[in-house]
Design a protein around this nucleic acid. Structure first.
Length: 500
RNA sequence: GGGCCGUUAGCUCAAUUGGCAGAGCAGGGGCCUCUUAAGCCCAAGGUUGUAGGUUCGAUUCCUACACGGCCCA
């Protein structure tokens, strides 16, 4: 035997599988098949075709013409007829390839294609004798020859690491992954639709900022060569958006990536998607109503059918009461770090307390002992002012700020203030932050003089909200890890690879 | 940063007490005109994450490292 396809000489590791596919592509090409056309016009989605022929009775055939395209998932049969499963973003359909329709040569070539190949089909809809909606293949066009084998056709790709590093393989082999990111897109579109409908202007402010601000977080740094200056990737859009409110844009929002140079977890990716909006003449109570109304609509648009009831009004708690109910500690009675620390230790609450300031301890009490219990949507109102350098002090005083955070699924999803508009007060807050930084706090607000000057031009009363899109999508899709809702999550370098 | 768990064929998974590393799918050679996890016959496919160690013998036991997951900080 000198036949190069003699099975006794074949191996089928990955390198051999690739060589086999390359050889097959070469063969098809020699036989006159165009393997990579520049376009394939007139394609309908499989879902559209399915919907149009759902009425066909078992065994009923048509002579109508439909053009579809997708990836070859599986083939059954051969000989003189075969069934092929084709998948596109909208769904799946069965093809019926027949030798008597296509002729011997083209039928055999079609049957020789591999799973993963991209295929265009001209076909006539029918319902098979077993009741499956099917397209009889009248003509076909190879749109791309896949040189590597796809993941398993039944199990798809399950290895978490590969699913996240090689999202394209996750998407092409797992319908759930395709659905999830379609849901994410719907949720984001619904956020924009809500804000647009309420007369907000979508704006874009710098990602590269001379000074970072608007949140308590460590930034990424970079360098601009031509300007020879240090720049930071933004940790929030807050300060620029407020300058737009000073400028008279009245209602603005920005939906985009923020970057925080912090650890990774199931709830934290170093780059994440946030929408912030600011509304002149409104306060934080107005914004609470806006958020619950918006999120209820987003959940509906995303087709959410889970356990969480987003319908307004959401539960409303007050910061100190929420901590008292969960831990028995009344923060009003412990106004300094030392007394609060001993109260925490007396009650045997498991949390580190050493070296933490009073605001940090108060914040940790909330995030460790209250936040995980907030499954149904809940607002926590009236944070200690020390935790809120951009929030206006509470009209009732008492060391509080007009600030709330919203929680659902045991996670913080949004944060809002009656914005601090007084430039002198803001200057004092920056000064307080500077003292914290000198004392060793790594997450403080740098002094931003341009922002202060903007406030000095006069800022109307304003309500502002930041809503974490990734976490909202986690809740809407029932995922417990942010890596499942971000297409390409941050991963460590893989190290030396032995893969082909 | 710490603890625990995982890493085996392209994919999904086995492997008993430390004793020749096996299946299914995919791929190759055949058969097959209503199949749908199609089926039947044949032949093949492995640096068991990496580097060491113990042992007559290591996927298995030990150490370090890499990557991932969960929990804690």
């Amino acid at each position: 035997m000198t036949d190069p396809t003699d099975s006794s000489t074949q191996k089928h590791g990955l390198a051999e599988l690739i060589a086999e596919r390359r050889a097959k592509a070469a063969r098809l090409s020699e036989e006159g098949e165009e393997l990579a056309p520049y376009s394939y016009p007139g394609v309908e989605s499989l879902a559209e075709v399915r919907a149009a022929y759902e009425h066909l009775q078992t065994g009923e055939e048509t002579e109508e013409h439909r053009r579809v395209a997708g990836r070859l998932l599986a083939r059954r049969g051969g000989g003189k007829a075969a069934f092929i499963d084709l998948v596109d973003r909208s769904g799946q359909i069965q093809l019926h390839a027949r030798l008597d329709v296509l002729g011997t040569e083209r039928f055999k070539r079609l049957c020789s294609l591999d799973s993963g190949d991209l295929l265009g089909i001209d076909g006539a809809p029918l319902r098979s004798r077993h009741g499956e909606l099917t397209l009889r293949v009248d003509d076909y066009q190879v749109l791309s020859k896949a040189l590597r084998p796809p993941p398993d056709k039944h199990s798809g790709l399950t290895d978490l690491e590969t699913r996240h590093r090689r999202r394209e393989l996750d998407l092409l082999s797992n319908e759930n992954a395709r659905k999830l990111f379609a849901t994410r897109a719907k949720a984001i579109a619904a956020v924009r639709a809500y804000l647009d409908a309420n007369n907000f202007l979508e704006v874009e402010t710098p990602v590269l900022q001379p000074l970072y601000g608007g949140a308590l977080a460590r930034p990424f740094m970079t360098h601009h060569n031509a300007l020879d200056r240090k720049l930071y990737l933004r940790i929030a859009t807050e300060l620029y958006l407020k300058r737009l409110i000073v400028g008279g844009l009245e209602r603005v929002y920005e939906l985009g990536k923020d970057f925080r140079n912090e650890g990774l977890s199931t709830k934290h990716n170093p780059e994440f998607t946030m929408v912030e909006w600011y509304e002149a003449y409104a306060d934080y109570q107005d914004e609470a109503r806006r958020l619950e109304e918006m999120v209820a609509r987003v959940a509906q648009a995303a087709g959410y059918e889970g356990e969480i009831d987003f319908k307004a009004p959401w539960r409303r708690l007050v910061f100190m009461d929420a901590i008292r109910e969960a831990t028995g500690i009344d923060l009003r009675a412990y106004r300094d770090a030392d007394s609060l620390r001993s109260a925490i230790r007396e009650r045997g609450l498991s949390m580190p307390t050493d070296g933490l300031s009073w605001p940090a301890l108060a914040d940790d009490l909330l995030s460790k002992h209250v936040e995980p219990t907030l499954i149904q949507p809940t607002f926590i109102f009236d944070y200690p002012i020390e935790l809120s350098p951009f929030a206006r002090s509470h009209r009732a005083g008492a060391g509080l700020a007009e600030r709330w955070e919203a929680f659902a699924g045991g996670m913080e999803i949004a944060n809002a203030f009656s914005e601090l508009t007084d430039p002198d007060e803001q200057r004092a807050r920056f000064e307080a932050q500077r003292r914290l930084a000198l004392a060793g706090d790594e997450e403080t607000q740098p002094h931003d003089e341009l922002f202060l000057e903007a406030l000095e031009h006069g800022m109307p009363p304003t309500g502002g909200v930041g809503l974490g899109i990734d976490r909202l999508v986690m809740i809407l899709t029932g995922q417990t890890s942010i890596r499942e809702v971000v297409l390409f999550p941050a991963m460590r370098d893989q190290g030396p690879s032995t893969k082909v």
